[in-house]
C-alpha cells in the first residue's frame, strides 16, 4: 500500500463506570493507507464505536489509558479535548451512530449548517457554492436547507449529514453505522455516495463501521474485524471474505445467508455462546470460550501479527 494516513498504536481506552472500568479497547494497533476505505465489523458491543470516537473525541466517561494515534505523521492529542478541537472537522470527522436522530428538530438545516461552520471559524459564505454543488451531487435539492430534519426521509438525512461532515475535506472520515437503519435500496445509495466522495477527493481515507460484513464487502478496500475490545483480523476485502484465517471471522462469514441459499439445501449455523464481559475480560484469547479450535496455548494472549502481506491475525492457529 501507499503512504500511511492513519496509524494507531497500542491504543487502550476504558469507560469509567460504577462497577469498574469497561475495557472497551485493548491494545489496538493498525494503520489505514492514504485513499484506503477500511470496513470495521464485529458483534454489537465489541468496541467499534469506541474506536471511532477515540480518534476524534473522548466523551466524559472515556479514559485514554495508553497508546497513540497519528494522522498524516502528526500525533493527535486524543486525551486533550481542547487541543483536539483544531483537528476535528478539518482533519478527522465522525458521522456518529444515530446521527439522524441527533439532529436538532427545531432548527432548519441551513441554520444548523451555518452554526456548525461558524463554530469552527469558517464563514458560511465561503463554502456556500461548494455546499450547493455537493447537495446536487447526492441528489438533494437546494431547498433542503430551508427544511427541518423531520421533513426528510432517513436516506435524505443521512446524505445531508454526509455532505455536511465532508464539507471541509477532512483527511479521515469515520462513518459509524450510517446505513444500518435504512432499507436496501437507500442503503446502497448511501454506501455508493461514500465511495463517490472518496473518489472525488472530498475525503482521503475512510473507516466505515458496520455490523454488516456484506455491506463493507461492496465498498471497502480492506476489512478489520474486532472481537470483545480487541482486533481479530485485518486484511484486504477479498481475503477476509474468501479466505479468513481467524476462527471468529470464519464463523461470522459462514453464518451469513446469501440470496439463493435455502434452509432446506444448506443449514447455516450461528456462533454459539456470547462475547465475554469487558468489565473483567478473561486472560488469553478472548474468543477462547466459543472457539472450536481452542487449545492449551490459547490461554496466552495471541499477538496481532502480519501473516501475509497486509493480512494481520490474532490467533495461535492462524
Amino acid at each position: 500500500m501507499s503512504k500511511v494516513s492513519l496509524r494507531v498504536a497500542g491504543l487502550k481506552v476504558h469507560y469509567r463506570t460504577l462497577r469498574g472500568d469497561v475495557k472497551a479497547l485493548d491494545d489496538v494497533t493498525f494503520a489505514v493507507a492514504d485513499g484506503e476505505t477500511m470496513g470495521l465489523a464485529g458483534e454489537s458491543g465489541c468496541g467499534k464505536t469506541t474506536l471511532g470516537k477515540s480518534l476524534i473525541r473522548l466523551d466524559g466517561r472515556m479514559r485514554h489509558v495508553d497508546g497513540t494515534v497519528e494522522l498524516d505523521d502528526e500525533e493527535l492529542p486524543i486525551g486533550d479535548t481542547a487541543r483536539m478541537n483544531d483537528f476535528r472537522f478539518r482533519e478527522v470527522f465522525i458521522i456518529p451512530q444515530y446521527a439522524m436522530s441527533a439532529m436538532n428538530p427545531t432548527r432548519k438545516i441551513g441554520k444548523m449548517t451555518k452554526e456548525l461552520l461558524e463554530s469552527r471559524g469558517v464563514r458560511f459564505e465561503t463554502v456556500r457554492t461548494e455546499l450547493k454543488r455537493r447537495l446536487e451531487l447526492v441528489g438533494l435539492a437546494h431547498d433542503v436547507l430551508d427544511r427541518y430534519p423531520i421533513e426528510l426521509s432517513g436516506g435524505m438525512k443521512q446524505r445531508m449529514v454526509m455532505v455536511l461532515s465532508t464539507l471541509l475535506n477532512p483527511s479521515l472520515l469515520v462513518a459509524d453505522e450510517v446505513t444500518s437503519a435504512l432499507d436496501v435500496s437507500t442503503q446502497r445509495a448511501v454506501a455508493e455516495t461514500l465511495v463517490d466522495f472518496r473518489d472525488r477527493g472530498f475525503v482521503r481515507s475512510m473507516i466505515v463501521i458496520t455490523h454488516d460484513v456484506s455491506l463493507v464487502y461492496q465498498i471497502a478496500d480492506s476489512i478489520m474485524v474486532m472481537y470483545a475490545g480487541k482486533l481479530a483480523e485485518k486484511a484486504p476485502t477479498d481475503v477476509i471474505v474468501d479466505s479468513p484465517r481467524h476462527p471468529y471471522t470464519q464463523l461470522l462469514i459462514s453464518s451469513l445467508p446469501e440470496v439463493g441459499v435455502k434452509y432446506a439445501d444448506k443449514r447455516l449455523t450461528g456462533i454459539p455462546g456470547s462475547p465475554p464481559s469487558l468489565l473483567d475480560p478473561p486472560a488469553g484469547c478472548r474468543f477462547r470460550d466459543r472457539c472450536p479450535l481452542a487449545f492449551d496455548k490459547c490461554s496466552e494472549e495471541p499477538p496481532f501479527v502480519e501473516v501475509e502481506h497486509g493480512h494481520y491475525v490474532a490467533c495461535w492457529k492462524a
Partner: peptide, 10 residues
Amino acid sequence: DASTRIDVLN
C-alpha cells in the same frame, strides 16, 4: 447480530 440471526431463522 449475524451470529445469532441465523439461529432464529433456523
